[in-house]
């Protein structure tokens, strides 16, 4: 008799997703890209300490705060883009997929597992770098405040969203293009709020030239507004970030993430794995 009789049901499904996620994490732990990114971020943090020497006494902690948030964001997003774009490609290239997908696992479970594994990895990265940052802050006479932790947390939500975008493009196209497109979405997503302002302004190219207006509207519609997750300015100025806003930002991030993962699932489900 067969040993694997119960393969259906949500518990089994979760078990498989967890297995894929755990395996993805294990792979990343043995991956040079991950350590490279970690090292680069730590270097940047140390650089911020050196830089702060040049700043005025009361600006030292500020500079480390600001620069720290920036470095962590930049390098986790870079990790997400690189590893996300390669996520499926590596499995296809090395043919490891052919031994996995014929097993009683759904493609959707596989993809969600891969995604979850990568998000967990990025969580670890943000956590480790956050701890380093904390140390540097203390060194410079500052402290990790709840507001700073919140700013970091929202950055993680952004990274998860970017990972979902990378997953989508990696299900759609080749890894280099997928990486470029994801980076593009990230950069444009960060400034798309400017576009919104331009569109609603009474004058200027975006408001007046029909083609540009149409293009601008499309961009605004299809791209997530990543500035939603950037509360660094408010936090650094000591302004409060309302709970409502945080909840809304979480919901916003989650919705876009679900959308991109769902699109990736649709693409991957149909694909011939040859």
């Amino acid at each position: 008799m067969t040993g694997a009789v119960h393969v259906t049901g949500p518990a089994r499904s979760l078990q498989r997703i967890a297995a894929v996620a755990a395996n993805t994490l294990r792979e990343a732990r043995r991956n040079r890209v991950f350590y490279g990114m970690l090292a680069a971020a730590v270097l940047l943090l140390l650089f911020s300490v050196a830089l702060s020497e040049l700043a005025l006494a009361d600006q030292k902690a500020r500079l480390v705060q600001d620069f720290g948030l920036f470095s962590i964001s930049l390098l986790t997003v870079a990790t997400a883009v690189l590893m996300g774009a390669l996520l499926l490609h590596k499995e296809l290239e090395r043919k490891t997929l052919y031994a996995i997908l014929p097993k009683p696992i759904r493609r959707s479970e596989f993809l969600v597992g891969k995604f979850a594994g990568l998000c967990a990895l990025l969580g670890v990265q943000v956590g480790l770098l956050g701890a380093c940052w904390w140390g540097v802050l203390v060194l410079r006479g500052g402290a990790m405040t709840p507001a700073l932790a919140l700013a970091l947390g929202l950055q993680y939500v952004e990274v998860v969203l970017v990972t979902a975008v990378a997953l989508f493009f990696s299900a759609l196209t080749r890894p280099v293009l997928a990486g470029v497109l994801t980076a593009g979405v990230f950069v444009v997503g960060r400034v798309v709020y400017v576009l919104q302002d331009l569109l609603s302004a009474p004058k200027g190219g975006f408001a007046e030239v029909p083609v540009m207006r149409a293009l601008g509207k499309v961009l605004v519609a299809v791209l997530p507004d990543l500035s939603t997750f950037n509360v660094a300015d408010e936090v650094l100025l000591g302004w409060p970030v309302p709970t409502d806003y945080v909840v809304a930002a979480l919901g916003y991030g989650l919705s876009w993430t679900v959308l991109f993962v769902a699109l990736a699932l649709v693409l991957f489900e149909r694909r011939d794995l040859t």
Binding site: V7, R12, A19, E27, R94, K95, A99
Partner: peptide, 24 residues
Amino acid sequence: PESPYFYDWLTPREVMNYAGDLFG
């Protein structure tokens, strides 16, 4: 599969564990 490949950073035992988890 034809000329099978597995994750080369895993050990045979880990490959078997992974497969075992997928089989439930």
